[in-house]
Design a protein around this nucleic acid. Sequence first.
DNA 1: ACAGTAACCTGTTTGC
DNA 2: TGCAAACAGGTTACTG
Length: 270
Amino acid sequence: MPELPEVETTRRGIAPYLLQQRWCGAVVRQPQLRQPVSATLDQQLRGREIHAVERRAKYLLIHCDGGYLLLHLGMSGSLRILPVGTPPGPHDHVDLCFESYLLRYRDPRRFGLLLWCEQPPQEHPLLRHLGPEPLAPAFSAESLHHQARQRKTPVKALIMEQRVVVGVGNIYANEALYLAAIDPRRAARRIALVRYQRLVVEIRAVLQRAIAMGGTTLRDFQHEDGKPGYFQQTLHVYGRGGAPCHGCGQPLRSERIAQRSSFFCPRCQR
DNA sequence: ACAGTAACCTGTTTGC
DNA sequence: TGCAAACAGGTTACTG
């Protein structure tokens, strides 16, 4: 599930429970994630106070005195606030504990990440090479057009590259290209600046809309998890191969582009 | 420098 | 109906 809007929704959901609080400790049941979870996480966190809960790309940074917890949800991760003593399910790998509740990390596929870091974020190997945030001014049509100059790669692959722009996952790459009327297979260098201007607008619009909707259905992190479906009613192309285009009624095409499932309207997108 | 592939893991869906 | 293959929202490392 986690693309940028869901990570941002998670950040907003957990932040009120974390800010100004002190960690009581951590329980690691399964340390084997994308990188191993520190065996001493409990000692590393215990007693530290949290100052800020930040998002960079799809990473969450929980800033404490003396360092920060770097967290990624991978393909299947989720975080929830639960009462102390809630029995863990099969893929509940880590509990991060406070006095009267806990932050529980669940991740069936274990592509996620949970690291205690003391070096500055901008120097961290996982964060150092990340491109601009899509909602920040540094992400512009001009820079996108410039980076696309020599690139024969399909434009969809380009906008999913983390060093070009962060946080555009497979769903929103498909959606944004549909909204911008650009064929996702088109070589990046064969797209004019004016079309990149529209693409930047649509990437921002689709992400902002999804954040707004995620905020309405995933607001309460204390109870169940509010799962997917939150943005699904408004998807134009993703997962709709063979179904009629919302614009022209022609059947949408489904194709693998750069090893990712892709959906587009061959008539509306050129 | 760039494009393509494999790999990390488990759960769910698809197809025979 | 049952089973195996294919596929899934991400990212990185390696290959040619």
